[in-house]
Design a binder for these strands. Sequence first.
DNA 1: ATTCGCCTTGGGCGAATGACCAATATGTAG
DNA 2: CTACATATTGGTCATTCGCCCAAGGCGAAT
Lengths: 192, 192
Amino acid sequence: MAVTAAERGRDVRRRLLTAAAELIPEVGWNSVSTRLLAQRAGVAPGLVHYHFPSLAVLLREAAVGVMREVVLATAPGLATAETVDAGLDLMLASLDAYTGTDPTSLLFIETYLAATRDENLRTELAGLVEEFRDALRSWLAEHGQDDHHQVAAVLAAAIDGVMLHRALHPELTSPAVFPVLRRMLAPGTANR
Amino acid sequence: MAVTAAERGRDVRRRLLTAAAELIPEVGWNSVSTRLLAQRAGVAPGLVHYHFPSLAVLLREAAVGVMREVVLATAPGLATAETVDAGLDLMLASLDAYTGTDPTSLLFIETYLAATRDENLRTELAGLVEEFRDALRSWLAEHGQDDHHQVAAVLAAAIDGVMLHRALHPELTSPAVFPVLRRMLAPGTANR
DNA sequence: ATTCGCCTTGGGCGAATGACCAATATGTAG
DNA sequence: CTACATATTGGTCATTCGCCCAAGGCGAAT
């Protein structure tokens, strides 16, 4: 039993963050209460305000943490893409995993919205979008895109827009999106 | 005083809808309470549940009403655009009015999110997006776009995505977006 | 064995919520 | 004038909320 109190504490903190990441998509950002959170994490209600100064801080850390993981998971694949087509294909393929109604998609939408009412969250989210744009920029520059700055910004926005619309019209999948978005990019080596 | 009770009733109903359209962006969909709504509309709290079966129904009717007005306001201009560039320019110009943090943008984002948790709202919203796509489709077809179905869907999504990202990065305005989105469309007559 | 520090418990506070309702007002119809 | 329908009032109900806290638990250090 080498588990110290501090280690158990860190575990509870992590469980609370995990529970938040689950509950935000399930019931919505504003309906994640301290009691619901504690129940899902399997801890006493009072622990929420022991490990976190407020519910808002907890939710922020949980949401941004998950989103950062998702974004960073896509970046390395882009960097090693041989052609523009391969890179775009890869991105849209991973986007297909997000149907607009799955937990991850909902977490994204919920967080975007919550950011409109939380200055700190908005700043963190802006930084995350900037990281994603950076990954897109270097990938595009690698393949001779001249206005990669603008293209990266629009492409990042378009991808989030597709995710948003996919919740309403599920048929908006990568085969339908690819040829249109492809035209935004430099000709590259081949046209699918 | 020819104002009948029924007329006053209809006026109260309308005032409640207007108040809802104001408050949803101000405080957020889930924080629009019956009392706050009644206060803004200048009526007694009990009237909310007299004119509407539930708060959810009121919010739905108010939000979709405003969104439909916004969408339908853009459509006729598109139909009379002489060139592809003129049409896209027009759309992006009207999009510039929505900074991502203004009431209308927030209403859109709030409603998209609320739709993920409200079956009826999702259906109404899907229909609205379909109307917007239709306007885009006929505009594109008019100018020789062959895959106007797919382009309209992606363009509609991209526009919403730009609005979403603009809340985080305000510099994503029409001059930056135009040249990139322009490439998604058929060559048309001129390149800006 | 005692002290120390971190973690945990469960309950309680005031405030706000959606929905509901009996009572009242006000205009129309018989 | 009397009945009636609709609109309105102001308050009550049970429930839930975020946050707080006194008290207890427990391994580590002395």
